[in-house]
């Protein structure tokens, strides 16, 4: 079945993931309501997203919807169940999906470090030039001259150009 996902969102009451999509008949939007069952404020959003994506009844429809987006939608639901405002949940999601540049990752345990790495991997994969890309070049050399005129990176100690 050809299915082009247009929009995907969440309804809180009763909880459901809602997908707007087009099938073979182009130009005609359809809506699919996928009820969310057994989800509490203690549930794991990542696992809930995986389960929905692999659900045999919904699988084909959700092919174009990323796991990350589904996970985010579940996070909204979870925040709602905790009584958080939308703004609070958004802020929480932002914290969980971005890297705090000040954080010392050496101090994290395996699980937390893996989370940070997967956030970084997203950008890596976005910018990655793979071997099978048509314009892939193995050896790319670009010169970036380091000279006195350059502005300091701002990370060095101010005094006398000391590191």
């Amino acid at each position: 079945m050809m299915c082009t996902a247009k929009k995907c969102g969440i309804r809180f009451q009763p909880p459901a993931i809602i997908l707007i999509y087009e099938n073979e008949m182009k130009g005609k939007s359809r809506q699919r309501i996928m009820p969310v069952r057994n989800f509490s404020k203690f549930s794991d959003c990542n696992r809930a997203a995986e389960q929905l994506k692999n659900n045999p009844r919904h699988k084909n429809y959700l092919e174009q919807v990323s796991l990350r987006q589904l996970e985010k939608l579940f996070s909204f639901l979870r925040g709602y169940l905790w009584g958080q405002s939308l703004a609070e949940t958004m802020e929480q999601i932002r914290r969980e999906t971005t890297i705090d540049p000040e954080e010392d990752l050496n101090k994290l345990d395996d699980k937390e470090l893996a989370k940070r790495k997967s956030i970084m991997d997203e950008l890596f994969e976005k910018n990655q030039k793979k071997k099978d890309d048509p314009n892939f070049v193995y050896d790319i050399e670009v010169e970036f001259p380091q000279d006195e005129q350059l502005q300091s990176c701002g990370w060095d100690t101010e005094s006398a150009d000391e590191f």
Partner: peptide, 12 residues
Amino acid sequence: KMTQKRFSFARK
């Protein structure tokens, strides 16, 4: 942008 910045550690 960071490639246009000076990093003193290497120089030091």
